[in-house]
Amino acid sequence: MQIGLYANTHGQANRDDTDIFLMQTPVDQMRPVQVAELAEAQGFHSLWFPDHVCMTIDSDSFHTANQSGTRAYQPRHNMLDAAVCMGAVAVRTSRLKLGTSCLISPYRDPLSDARQFMTVDQLSGGRLMLGVAAGWMQEEYAAVGVPFEERNGRLKECIEIYKRSWTDEVVAYDGEFYRFANVSMDPKPVTRPHPPIVYGGNTPFGARRAIRLCTGFYPLFLDAHAEPDRFAPLQDEIRREAEKLGRDPAGFTMTCAASARITDAGDPQSEERPRRTCTGTAEQVLEDLERFAKAGYSLVVCMFECPSGELAELEDQIRRFGAEVIPEARKFAPAGEWLQVD
């Protein structure tokens, strides 16, 4: 099993007994390049950047990061741009893979995204992992002028355009939402045939779409007591859809994001009953990570709880995971026929 890190470019995370929250974090407490360099030195597999164009002051939309639907973001929220940060990190690291968690593709121009993320892959020497999703906030779609009800159709076309842009010598597309012909998109990404594209979702529809269009599935386990086998029915859905398509699921990856926090023995968080998922001592965190491996996941992207909101606390979590968790987690062999993330 590999361990990734959820970037703090949308703020430091905290949890109550039900939900995950992102705190309003000053930019000088984010420092994405510094965090990336430390994560690479500590053996993390990848760094995953969240994405939003804007955040409306209030929202009635159901936030899929929390099973309660409660929005994790504050009314006014500091957010750094994923692609820009990834470009900066790419030239200051050499091994760390760079992902999006997740790019809200449908309200952007897919050719522009194909260009931006090809650039990330080029600058990093082939380390891009593109997570895509339809998004959840209706108010944000309204702000950028794209109908929310079109998001699923647009996402499908965006994924198809990314792949054509990254593989075809002459790029053309004739869809419901995007139409163009005789376009060049060069250079191509370093990764061939194209960088991995993982689908962020937690519904049967999303699971079926993931195996149809992408190279992996990426659900979230960010709420306090998330069970690692929660989405086992979705894996079965993927298997059934793969059989219909004649596609071998052994070429498809299972990745997920989970909130986490390592503490000392005797810390109240390690003694909670029930204990929050992936929290407590290194041994307790590893128990939960092994359950994720048994549920089929070969990469768990950890969003660290840092109640102080301070960068120093995040750095301490990164160091402790690097020393106490990652070497042991690498010994876990994920269950199932899925392709393991390398």
Results as ranks from 00 to 15, higher is better:
residue 244 K to H: 12
residue 245 L to H: 12
residue 245 L to D: 03
residue 246 G to Q: 10
residue 246 G to M: 12
residue 248 D to Q: 07
residue 248 D to T: 11
residue 248 D to I: 14
residue 249 P to V: 14
residue 250 A to E: 10
residue 251 G to I: 13
residue 252 F to Y: 09
residue 252 F to M: 05
residue 252 F to V: 11
residue 252 F to W: 07
residue 253 T to I: 06
residue 253 T to V: 09
residue 253 T to F: 04
residue 253 T to K: 05
residue 254 M to L: 12
residue 258 A to F: 14
residue 258 A to Y: 12
residue 259 S to T: 14
residue 259 S to I: 08
residue 259 S to N: 03
residue 261 R to G: 00
residue 263 T to R: 15
residue 266 G to M: 12
residue 267 D to Q: 04
residue 267 D to R: 05
residue 269 Q to F: 11
residue 269 Q to P: 01
residue 276 R to D: 02
residue 277 T to H: 04
residue 277 T to Y: 06
residue 278 C to Q: 04
residue 278 C to T: 10
residue 278 C to S: 06
residue 282 A to L: 11
residue 282 A to P: 03
residue 283 E to D: 12
residue 285 V to R: 04
residue 285 V to E: 03
residue 286 L to V: 09
residue 286 L to F: 08
residue 287 E to N: 06
residue 288 D to W: 07
residue 288 D to E: 03
residue 288 D to C: 05
residue 288 D to G: 03
residue 289 L to R: 05
residue 289 L to M: 06
residue 291 R to L: 15
residue 291 R to W: 12
residue 295 A to T: 05
residue 295 A to N: 01
residue 296 G to W: 06
residue 296 G to F: 05
residue 297 Y to P: 00
residue 297 Y to C: 01
residue 297 Y to Q: 01
residue 298 S to K: 01
residue 299 L to P: 02
residue 299 L to F: 07
residue 300 V to Y: 05
residue 302 C to E: 01
residue 302 C to P: 00
residue 303 M to S: 01
residue 304 F to V: 07
residue 304 F to G: 00
residue 305 E to P: 00
residue 307 P to Q: 08
residue 308 S to W: 13
residue 309 G to Y: 13
residue 309 G to V: 15
residue 310 E to H: 12
residue 312 A to E: 14
residue 313 E to L: 08
residue 313 E to I: 09
residue 313 E to Y: 08
residue 316 D to C: 07
residue 317 Q to S: 03
residue 320 R to E: 06
residue 321 F to P: 00
residue 324 E to W: 11
residue 324 E to K: 11
residue 324 E to M: 12
residue 326 I to W: 10
residue 326 I to D: 01
residue 326 I to S: 02
residue 326 I to L: 12
residue 327 P to K: 11
residue 327 P to G: 10
residue 328 E to V: 14
residue 328 E to I: 13
residue 328 E to L: 10
residue 328 E to S: 09
residue 330 R to L: 15
residue 330 R to Q: 14
residue 330 R to C: 07
